[in-house]
Computed example of a mutant assay.
Amino acid sequence: MPWLTQLADVARRTGCPVTEVRGWKTRGHGPQPEVQGVVCHHTAGPAGGGDYPSLRVVRSGRPGLKGPLSHIGLGRSGRIYVIAAGRCWHNAPSTSPLHDNSSSIGIEAENDGSQPWLAEQLDAYHRLCAELCKEFGLPASRVKGHKEVNRQKPDPHHIAMDDFRSAVARLIKADQDGDGWPGRLLRYPPVTRGEDVRDWQQAAARLGYELDIDGAYGSASRAVCRKIQRDAGLDDDGIVGRLTWAATFHAR
């Protein structure tokens, strides 16, 4: 398998914000031989320090272990950091031949190993794993926690991996069934300024949807936001940067 230079495009399909770390397309311990699985980690990095303070270590390594240490990083905000396109030292020794350094993609999510997981980060984690599974033709069962394929590791802490895989499987199935867009009830947080709300309502109407503001806070479906933006020509910075409230799209 060549260098995984499609990873940034795969990450963007989640609808989450994406940062391409300089040099990622040629970073790795040689090309990635194959992708048979996905391994989920937490960084065990600092408790504070911003969205992804572990970037330097994941990219460049630490004493005794040269980087990159994972293909992808996941910030506390749900931002995805694409770090390497080649093989990474993220799981060895592995108890699974489908989840070692030569056969799997590693994701390092920012967490000190005891902090509660933020809803937006877990949502992005699920979406990222689902998109990776779709890209490489993997079932959700191929998504494993580091703790499941390396007996020496505890990560990702306090995540029940069976529940995690169920969430990934639902996202894969929704896409296969065509339920992700359009169709079923979709939630996203729209803007609060009146003129921006009108922009979204008009855009939704042109796409055959009705936008109802209910004023209750809910979780973001960024993929929906991005879809509306692309189809309706709405400005990214001018609208998505001010999303704060919950709403629903209903198919007409």
Results as ranks from 00 to 15, higher is better:
P68V: 06
L69F: 08
L69G: 04
L69I: 08
S70Q: 12
S70F: 14
G73S: 10
L74T: 05
L74W: 02
L74P: 00
L74E: 06
L74S: 02
G75F: 11
G75H: 01
R76C: 00
I80H: 02
Y81R: 00
Y81C: 03
V82P: 06
V82F: 08
V82K: 10
I83F: 03
A84I: 02
A85D: 05
G86W: 06
G86M: 13
G86S: 09
R87M: 14
R87K: 15
C88V: 07
C88G: 05
W89R: 12
H90R: 08
H90P: 03
N91R: 06
P93C: 03
S94A: 15
T95I: 09
L98D: 15
L98H: 15
H99P: 02
H99M: 14
H99G: 13
H99V: 13
D100C: 14
D100T: 08
D100P: 00
N101F: 15
S102G: 13
S102R: 08
S103W: 04
S104H: 10
S104C: 14
I105C: 08
I105G: 03
G106C: 11
G106A: 11
I107Q: 07
E108Q: 05
A109Y: 02
A109W: 09
E110I: 00
E110S: 02
E110H: 04
E110T: 00
N111F: 11
N111Y: 11
N111P: 01
D112C: 12
D112H: 01
G113Q: 10
S114K: 04
P116L: 04
P116V: 02
P116T: 02
W117R: 01
W117Y: 08
L118Q: 01
L118M: 10
L118D: 03
E120L: 12
Q121A: 06
Q121L: 05
L122Q: 06
L122K: 10
A124L: 10
H126S: 02
C129Y: 03
C129V: 05
C129M: 03
C129N: 13
C129L: 08
E131V: 07
E131T: 05
L132Y: 12
C133Q: 01
K134A: 15
K134Q: 06
E135L: 06
F136V: 05
L138F: 15
A140V: 05
S141E: 15
V143C: 05
K144D: 04
K144G: 03
K144M: 15
K144V: 13
G145Q: 04
G145C: 12
G145E: 10
G145Y: 11
H146S: 15
K147P: 00
K147A: 14
E148S: 11
V149M: 02
V149C: 12
N150E: 03
N150A: 07
Q152R: 09
K153V: 08
K153I: 11
P154G: 09
D155S: 13
D155T: 12
H157T: 00
H158Q: 01
H158M: 02
I159R: 01
A160P: 00
M161H: 09
M161P: 00
D162M: 05
D162L: 02
D163N: 06
F164C: 05
R165M: 03
R165Y: 01
A167H: 07
A167S: 07
A167R: 09
A167M: 11
V168S: 03
V168L: 02
R170F: 09
R170E: 13
L171R: 14
K173I: 13
A174N: 13
D177C: 04
D177F: 09
D177N: 12
D177V: 09
